[in-house]
Structures are given as C-alpha cells and as structure tokens.
C-alpha cells in the first residue's frame, strides 16, 4: 500500500526552482533515504509533504489525503531539521503535551523518553539539554502512536554512534510493522545499510532513484585494481608494460577499468601470477556513486 505519492512536484521560491518535476512514492514498510547536496530541496520536499508549505505544480497524496489535512496529520510523524522546543519545559512535559495533542494519555511520556535513552533527564528542562539530547526529544515525539508515515529530516544529526545504531534499530522495528519512512541524511554509509531505497536530489531535480545495487550498476563507474608486485622493482616494470593503462602508485601498480572489462583484465593479471604478491579490487565507493549522480549540471 502506498503511503506517500508525489507526482511532478514543482516548487518555486521567487524565481528559484527549489523542486522541479519530482515524482516519488513510498510504500508501507519501506525505508527511503533522500540524499542530495545542501540546498538540493530535501527539507522543502518534506515540508510540502507535511503541508507546511504549498507547492506550485503537481500532486501530493499523503495517506490517501491532501498534505496537512487532519487525516494526513493524524497518521504522519515529523522530525524537522534543527528541531527546537521551549527551553522552560522538561522533556517529560513536552512529550506529554505532544501525546495529548494526538489524543493519547500523557502517562506514556516516560516510556517514550526511555526508548530514546533520555529516561534519566526526563524531568530536567530542555534548556539544559545537549544538542543530541534535544534531537532525541525530537525522535521521541516522532515515535508517538506508531505513525503510518514518518518524515525525518536529518534524524541522526548530532547523535553519537551508539545512539545512531539504536535509532536505526527502532526504525527497523517500525518498518517491520508497516510504517513507511522517508528520511534525509548526509551520512551515506549508515543510509546504505539501513534503507531500502535511495532518492538523490540535485538542484531540485530527482537525478537517481533505486536500491544501492541498482544505482551502482547504473552509474557504471570504473573499478580500481591495485596489484602488488612480488619482486620490486623488476616485476613492477613487467606489470606496467603488460597492463595497458596502468600506473605506478607507491609500490603498487594501479589500473581502473569499466565494469564489463573487469573479467578480461583480471584474466590478463592472472596470467602474470608469478610476478604478483597480492591483488586488491576496489569497487566504486558509495561517495563515488553519490557524487556521480549528484553532480550538478555545469559542475
């Protein structure tokens, strides 16, 4: 079941195209990561989904209703980037308030704060919290009432490594129960391991979409092969001569080749095995794939 559908979404801020013909859908139980450079339009897209700002063209459907409608707001949780709370309230009071706004008993506040590891600080004022603790209050409010769609804008910013892992574990649990999750992030490695699909925005346009494997295939970036000669400098010269396009890098001989030439090149290298001490194949990194898609026109 589709929880969120965007089609041909366009948003302009006086002349500037913040979003340009973006189409996207998120199904129940799916975890989708929204990637893109600063100013790519991630937060803008999320605010439109929440009904906080209006869009110019295209259609948006949230839980089968209009964004910002009561029905949509009932089932959607949001964590804004740089989430803020009134400093005079304690974490428990703030969460209790949010619980009541969703029609739930305030007594659930303590359990939610425990779930994000804030149990000990529950009765202290938010004004005295650290940045990561404030972020966790934001996470706690997003977990209220098992939402059907979660929209999380850079949810792990400011979190320490252990809390990041805990946070993704919570998300996994929610997704398994059918919650659709759309999150933005600049931390590629955690997104790689913890989401089903990536959407890359660049300058407001969607430049790539799919699981990491798909993107890797589509980007078709060269593979880097590093060979360590068995007998420096004698074997080095032989290898450099035998492998066209190779270069010496320190003690290693390095060459890059397209994905579909990989086997042929490896075969040639295997033929030189008595000259080789070790071989290292480096597939394109996540950063390589990301920057391949995210490069803006003219850059």
């Amino acid at each position: 079941m589709t929880m969120l559908t965007l089609s041909h979404l366009t948003k302009r801020f006086d002349g500037l195209n913040a979003l340009c013909d973006v189409s996207l859908s998120v199904a129940a139980g799916e975890r989708v990561a929204l990637l893109g450079h600063n100013g790519a339009g991630k937060s803008t897209l999320m605010k439109i989904v929440l009904g906080l700002i209006a869009h110019d063209e295209g259609t948006v459907e949230v839980l089968g209703a209009a964004p910002g409608s009561t029905r949509a707001r009932d089932g959607v949780a949001y964590l804004p980037e740089n989430v803020a709370f009134h400093p005079a309230l304690s974490g428990r009071e703030q969460i209790a308030h949010y619980l009541r706004l969703r029609g739930l008993p305030a007594s659930g506040a303590r359990a939610l704060l425990d779930r994000v590891g804030l149990g000990d600080a529950a009765n202290r004022r938010i004004g005295t919290y650290s940045k990561g603790m404030r972020q966790r209050v934001g996470l706690a409010q997003a977990l209220i009432g098992t939402p059907r769609l979660m929209v999380l804008d850079e949810p792990t910013s400011g979190l320490d490594p252990v809390s990041r892992r805990d946070f993704y574990a919570i998300l996994d649990g929610l997704a398994a129960e059918g919650t659709a999750i759309l999150l933005s992030s600049h931390a590629l490695t955690e997104v790689e391991a913890r989401t089903d699909r990536m959407v890359i925005l660049s300058g407001g346009a969607m430049v790539a979409e799919g699981a990491l494997g798909d993107l890797r295939r589509r980007a078709d970036l060269p593979v880097r092969i590093a060979v360590t000669p068995s007998d420096i400098p004698c074997s080095t010269t032989t290898l450099l001569m035998a492998l066209p396009g190779s270069e010496q890098e320190g003690e290693q001989v390095v060459l890059s080749c397209a994905q579909d030439e990989k086997l042929a090149v490896l075969g040639r290298i295997a033929g030189l095995s008595e000259r080789i001490a070790d071989i290292d194949i480096q597939p394109p990194s996540l950063e390589d794939i990301y920057s391949h898609f995210s490069r803006r026109a003219g850059q």
Binding site: L50, L52, R102, Q141
Partner: peptide, 13 residues
Amino acid sequence: ERGTLPLLLTYPL
C-alpha cells in the same frame, strides 16, 4: 523565532 512552530503545526490540531 525559536523554530517550534513547524513541528506544532504538523500535529492534528
């Protein structure tokens, strides 16, 4: 100014 309004407005009230 505090930035608390966007979140509040996403609640069903």
